[in-house]
C-alpha cells in the first residue's frame, strides 16, 4: 500500500479494557502522534466507520454491544484488536466474566499486542488494517473497479467480503 484513495474513519469501543489502551488510542489522535494526517477521524457513529478498533476482552454484558456495532458498520470493514486483552484476554483471561479475545465473537483482521499497546504500534496496526480494507474493497463483487468508485463503498447489499460469523 503506497497511498490512500480514501479517508478511513474509525470507531472505538472499550469492551472491557482497563482504559490503558483506550487512552493510548485517543493519544494517537492528538498532536504528538496525529493519525489525522492519514485522514483518519474518530467517529462516534458505526455507520460512518470503516475501521473498528476494539480494546479489552469480551464479557457477558458487552457481547451484544460489540456485535451490534459490528453489524451496523457498512462493508467493507476491518477490525483491529488493540491490546493483549482484546487479542487473547491478557491478564484477565482467567477472570470469570471474560470470555477471551474479541475473535471469539467477530472476525479480527489485525492484532496489536501490548499492555498497554503503545501509540506507535496502534498506528502501525491501523495502517496495516487500511491495506486490508483496500484489499477487501477490491475483492467485493459488483463494485465498479475503475474511477466512479464514489458510490462503491456505499453498496450495502454486497456481503462477499468480510462477512459476519
Amino acid at each position: 500500500m503506497t497511498y490512500l484513495a480514501k479517508s478511513p474513519w474509525l470507531i472505538h469501543y472499550d469492551a472491557s479494557s482497563c482504559n490503558g489502551c483506550d487512552i493510548e488510542v485517543l493519544a494517537c489522535l492528538t498532536p504528538m502522534y496525529d493519525v489525522e494526517r492519514f485522514g483518519i477521524i474518530n467517529t462516534g457513529n458505526p455507520k460512518h466507520a470503516d475501521v473498528f478498533v476494539v480494546t479489552g476482552g469480551v464479557n457477558e454484558l458487552n457481547r451484544a454491544v460489540i456485535k451490534n456495532i459490528y453489524d451496523q458498520m457498512v462493508e467493507p470493514k476491518v477490525v483491529v484488536a488493540v491490546g493483549i486483552c482484546a487479542c487473547s484476554g491478557g491478564v484477565f483471561r482467567e477472570c470469570y466474566n471474560i470470555s477471551g479475545g474479541i475473535d471469539k465473537l467477530i472476525p479480527v483482521d489485525v492484532y496489536v499486542p501490548g499492555c498497554a499497546a503503545r501509540p506507535e504500534s496502534i498506528i502501525d496496526g491501523i495502517v496495516t488494517a487500511l491495506g486490508i480494507l483496500e484489499e477487501k474493497r477490491k475483492n467485493m463483487t459488483n463494485v465498479p473497479q475503475k474511477s466512479a468508485d464514489n458510490s462503491a463503498s456505499h453498496n450495502q447489499n454486497n456481503q462477499s467480503a468480510g462477512g459476519t460469523q
Binding site: 464479557n59 457477558e60 454484558l61 470469570y96 466474566n97 471474560i98 470470555s99 471469539k104
Partner: peptide, 23 residues
C-alpha cells in the same frame, strides 16, 4: 452487575466449567 456466573463471589469457579469461557 450482570455476570456470566450468578453470584460469582459465593461459589468456587474453576476455569474449565466457567460459563463465559466456553461460549
Amino acid at each position: 452487575f450482570q455476570t456470566s456466573v450468578k453470584h460469582p463471589f459465593s461459589v468456587t469457579i474453576t476455569k474449565e466449567d466457567d460459563a463465559c469461557q466456553n461460549r
